[in-house]
Design a protein around this nucleic acid. Sequence first.
DNA 1: ATGCTTATTTATCGTTCGATAAAGAAATTG
DNA 2: CAATTTCTTTATCGAACGATAAATAAGCAT
Lengths: 199, 199
Amino acid sequence: MVMGRPRSFCTDKALDEAMEVFWRHGYDGSSLAMLTKAMGIKPPSLYAAFGSKEGLLKAALDRYAQRRSEHMGYVLAGETARDVAERFLLSIAESHTDPANPPGCLLVQGGLACGEGSESIPFELAAKRAETERDLKERFVLAKQTGDLSEDSDPSALARFLSTVASGMGVLASSGADREALREVARVSIRAFSRTPVA
Amino acid sequence: MVMGRPRSFCTDKALDEAMEVFWRHGYDGSSLAMLTKAMGIKPPSLYAAFGSKEGLLKAALDRYAQRRSEHMGYVLAGETARDVAERFLLSIAESHTDPANPPGCLLVQGGLACGEGSESIPFELAAKRAETERDLKERFVLAKQTGDLSEDSDPSALARFLSTVASGMGVLASSGADREALREVARVSIRAFSRTPVA
DNA sequence: ATGCTTATTTATCGTTCGATAAAGAAATTG
DNA sequence: CAATTTCTTTATCGAACGATAAATAAGCAT
């Protein structure tokens, strides 16, 4: 049994609140005051649980990526490469405009550029984004092996294209685009995707 | 003739230096110390010339958008809608990986999310991005009128798609993707773009 | 030359930043 | 129960933040 006074707050719940702050204001734009207020705890509790502001972001990113990876199970289960692309982009149109969350994507909003002393943050976000792209690529490699994608298709390029559109949709959503606008982008992208690959 | 002591620095040159700082570190990540050091001037000179940190960003954005609009002249002069799309995306692949500038796009890197007291910054950036999208849309409306684009095509959706891919390419470039990777995304996007529009 | 006007320099303003030391509270252990 | 351990509270730390007041310097006007 663990000794000492038990923690009075739920780590995951506090992490969800911190995630929302980072999501809405970015890493540099999120102050300790904003974070502790949203989490309902005080600085020493935050530092005891997460080590630092950067540690808190990483914990929030891990939680975000975990949710996302659960979702990727559904996406990757699409029967064809085209189905996978469609599921990927359309589900992003939904999630990036979910009223339960800030608009856009934490991995884009969180901090593409940061100030001195936070140089590692953009790399953290990029690494998480790269995971999704890698998942898509592996799925497309498989699709090529099974003949679902033609011999001259490029799984890596297709995955990068989808990942790039997803990031763009995050930017679009963050500036207030509605769900239908994102669906429209998804549809055009899928159209591009599903046609014969060689120009 | 103007009276008083003349300004000892070139406003545009200082603005270029400030632009680079905002580009690389974002609005919140750029401190007055970083900005004044890069610009080679001291705070009072900065405030006299630009009013505030936010005023400095707006001036830098205007300068950035002006350069871009010059470039858009070339893009929009493409003979067909497909040419326009190709020029647009391929030129972005070049500009977003130009070693003379920070990687990516100021209008994306500059601040998708900001802290308290800087809430207007993301809107400023979004407005500039929207200008490009509007230019593309108008060009595609014209293309539809002249029969270059088919009757059932959607100029607005196509413009939004290209603008979204451009934003995504900005995110991609900011995380270190090389020029060829961006070109690849551009090629896949154009392929999507140039095919028959109805699924 | 003297006065007027504007810019630059120096030195700082009050606030907020991320992060902690020290004291008090709540649990298990013996 | 007292001792130990861990967390929470209170109060604050030094540094950096964005922004300026006051003094000095450099140009026109007469």
